[in-house]
Computed example of a mutant assay.
Amino acid sequence: MKARAFLPVLFFGLVTVSCRKPDEVEISETRVLTTLDEEPAVNATSSEQFLPPEVLSQIQASGQSLDGSEAAAGSSAWIYLLPAADWKEADKAPMREVNLTFGDGEQAGEVYLSVSGGGLQPNVDRWYRQFGADTQPIAELGRLEFLGKQGYLVEATGRYEPGMGRPGKDGQALLGAIVEDQGRLVTVKMIGPEADVQARREQFVKFVASLARK
């Protein structure tokens, strides 16, 4: 009998608590909505999600497609912004996932992207050796935006010895970018006549910043 008398009282107490109205709160401040407040774009491409806004707007304004059909003709894995009219798509080549040229004629230079293994320092050391230059520790290199991270910038000038049976050239320059991404090293190298490479330094940095995986 005591249990029967107790249960209705407990139930009544639960109902009473659940029916209480929440306290009223006065709004005293407002703020601008950010992307964190927006509904997620379920069908957004990787470019729309990860490219810097200024790069994304430039690609859209130039008429290049975000799926890579125009922005990265000849590359099945990457999209990017070509920063100047004399940057051209080149034929596919072994070990190069993106292959471009800049300039004209015999003085044309090359820009290419590769994905490989190994360590950061050994790769950077090899680049310096190709120019007969003293290597520099990774920690002392310049930085640049690369795949949403801080990549390392390598610069060298002099006689370029590419190896693999290719002849060397005097008066050349290198701008190289390297970053670790998804367990691999992604590298971009610009090589060509010293004056031409140095004149395109800003273009190189802009190109590297625009790179994104499809």
Rank of each mutant, 00 (worst) to 15 (best):
R143W: 00
L81I: 09
A85D: 07
V32W: 11
R159V: 14
E70M: 07
Q60V: 12
W127S: 14
E39S: 14
Q58I: 11
P137R: 06
N99G: 11
P53K: 06
Q49D: 12
T101S: 15
Q121G: 01
V154E: 03
K149T: 08
D134E: 10
E145I: 04
A71R: 03
I79F: 00
L100C: 12
P122Q: 09
D125K: 06
G158F: 03
A84R: 02
A108P: 05
W127M: 15
R159F: 14
P137G: 09
G109Q: 09
L56Q: 12
E39N: 12
A41C: 04
L56K: 10
Q136T: 07
R143E: 10
P137V: 07
V32G: 10
K88M: 07
G63L: 07
E38S: 09
S69N: 07
A156W: 00
P83M: 09
F131V: 15
G74L: 05
P162I: 01
G68F: 00
A133C: 02
L144N: 06
A108C: 03
A93Q: 10
E155L: 03
P122D: 08
V32N: 11
E106M: 12
Y128R: 08
A71Q: 01
G105R: 06
L144P: 13
A77E: 12
G132M: 11
A73W: 04
V42F: 05
E140Q: 15
A44W: 08
N99C: 08
E106C: 06
E110K: 06
L100P: 03
S57P: 01
R143D: 03
G151F: 00
A71Y: 01
L113R: 00
E39R: 15
R143V: 04
L147D: 03
D104N: 12
P52R: 10
S47G: 14
Q150W: 00
E140S: 15
D67P: 08
L120G: 05
E161T: 14
S65R: 09
L120Q: 09
G63C: 10
S62F: 01
G148N: 03
E38Q: 13
G63D: 08
P122V: 10
A85F: 01
L120N: 05
S65W: 01
P94T: 13
G148T: 00
L33W: 10
G117A: 15
V115I: 13
I79D: 02
G142Q: 11
Q60K: 13
R96I: 03
A90S: 12
M95C: 07
E140D: 15
V115C: 11
V115P: 07
V124D: 09
S57F: 00
L82P: 02
